[in-house]
Design a protein around this nucleic acid. Sequence first.
DNA 1: CTGAAAGCGCTTACAG
DNA 2: CTGAAAGCGCTTACAG
Lengths: 369, 369
Amino acid sequence: MIGEGADARDGIRTALRSPVSLITAKDVAREAGVHPSTVSRSLDPEQMARVKTETRLRVQEAAGRLGYRPDLTASSLRRQRTMTIGVLIPSFGNPIYGDLIHGINAELEPHGYQGLMIETPDGSDRLSPALETLRGRRVDGIICATSRSEDRQVLRDLVDSGMPVVLTLRWLAGLAIARVVNDDRLGGFLAGQHLVSLGHRRMLEIPGSEDIETFADRSRGFRDGLAAAALTPIRHGERTTTPDVSEGRRVMANLLASGVMDGVTAVFAQNDLLGIGAIEALRSAGLQCPEDVSVMGFNDSPLVDHLDPALSTIAMPMVEMGMRAGREILRAVNGQDTEHDVVTVRPTLVPRASTSAPAQAARPAAPAD
Amino acid sequence: MIGEGADARDGIRTALRSPVSLITAKDVAREAGVHPSTVSRSLDPEQMARVKTETRLRVQEAAGRLGYRPDLTASSLRRQRTMTIGVLIPSFGNPIYGDLIHGINAELEPHGYQGLMIETPDGSDRLSPALETLRGRRVDGIICATSRSEDRQVLRDLVDSGMPVVLTLRWLAGLAIARVVNDDRLGGFLAGQHLVSLGHRRMLEIPGSEDIETFADRSRGFRDGLAAAALTPIRHGERTTTPDVSEGRRVMANLLASGVMDGVTAVFAQNDLLGIGAIEALRSAGLQCPEDVSVMGFNDSPLVDHLDPALSTIAMPMVEMGMRAGREILRAVNGQDTEHDVVTVRPTLVPRASTSAPAQAARPAAPAD
DNA sequence: CTGAAAGCGCTTACAG
DNA sequence: CTGAAAGCGCTTACAG
């Protein structure tokens, strides 16, 4: 009987797995009266020029009618390209990375690429496993926004294996890997300059983790900003682990207890959360921000403009950074040399209520009256 | 000359594409002196029992030495399984979804599955294209955290196509799709009960978008909470589009201008951002929170505990929700019937400084003195 | 311009 | 217990 074979086969298929009956190029070919290879050509923008218009339209019509979608899994195997870019993100819970992802996707999607996001939290030892996963999935390239100094060897091996890689948000000195980063030194400089221009003379930093180049750069910039007014930050030995609110609170409490804060009128916290914690510790000690101590953050995280006081901070162009990183990885994937590409985006000062002139009005060396 | 053929081939490979020289099962087989099929069996937990231990160890050793990772692209094609779950998220920029993703990944990863996250913002018409992408990539199942009433038909079609689907965070009435959701009605109830217990009598809601079932449920629960004290929320015609700070500000300004707020001592905003905006509009009008008007939010977003006043809100167990959603989709992928599964997680009240007893101490009907 | 064939790398009935 | 073969669905030199 006609169709018996097909029915039986369908029956088996259905019984074995989910009833997703997927249309293949073969089905479309039968419908359009052509060979499957012609289906492939008619649907590939790069190849369709070689197909007679009439044939192409017939195939496209049939494909549309049947709802045909080429199986990317098969296409990937044949082409040795998955049209997938691995994206390593420090945290899905930190909204500033949301804009980075937006930027990356905005660049990848129009080119048919899909970002495969994996979270590799700081200090989690999850970078290596994540890279193994991405290798197994044969991603075409990797954007890494989580590099720490301890990752140097792993990243070096990754690049040596031939995988196109772009570092963004953070980078590591001494690795020949393309990077797209914020000019953190400029950011630190802007913070320092801002506090100096308000009239502060005694200032200190609440540093982020030292094994992240980004934070080291913010320090350098901050020192530059102070140096321009012949000032230096007050030195102290406090270090932070994860740059969050509780660490900011802990460090500021220590600084207050040890007397390091005596006479200090402004603090540059290397990110917003540290700054928020610092303000809370100040408040607990009976000090007001900005009246007694001005506090700056870094990142311009969501909601920090709704805090009391609204947090002065440095904003990074995260969307732009993501787009640039996307562009770089696509260049690398397409065989263009990017190894020594360094793209830098510029942060901006966002002055708000948490910084003001010091109460004692210790204005920068104006002629004495 | 020995090896000449191989060298020539490698040369071509290198010239053609990235120099990622990937080890295949064939390479491992040669190294271990077995057939590629034995390599496959020795490395597959489900099959390795059939291989003589000695052989298996030899293969595993060779695989380890060569750094062999099976090509998931080939494996997917052969097995008709990609070990990938599509995850549709409303926004990467909203940190509450970070915990949802954590929960999902925590469940998927131990089972060898990978989440493929795609952002489909509300009101963006990006659900359909995203689903097309996921189909093309042959994901094994889809977790959708973005469903709106306008998506009903698209989701119905998706399920009809045989794709395993689980809705989470939000859901749609009248669709036979498994769902894992917060008990929003309970959340609304807790909010109402909290305000009533503080002594409030005249209260109103700032609603979220009406075409999201979640928000409608919060309203129902809130009304329940008030009804338990024989109260009803003040009705008004204000509606919000995207539930963000500026909408909260706009709506509260309108409510104040139109006199609807007269005598109202407490407001339930259906999410934190609306609540923050409402507080700001109150302040602009010379009213203090909570002294003049108490405000509750919903979500317990990051940083709302650092606002002034710290926002009272309802917390959802996002990690748990994500884990449950992950578990459900794996069940569905593995052919277990989930169509009518409804998993509900319970929110909790997080009372903070933005809610207090009303100034005029309109305590609930105590015997007059 | 189109068809037929080969092959991407894996997995899995099927033999033996 | 292991090998040899077939085939997942696509794409692309190769013919014609």
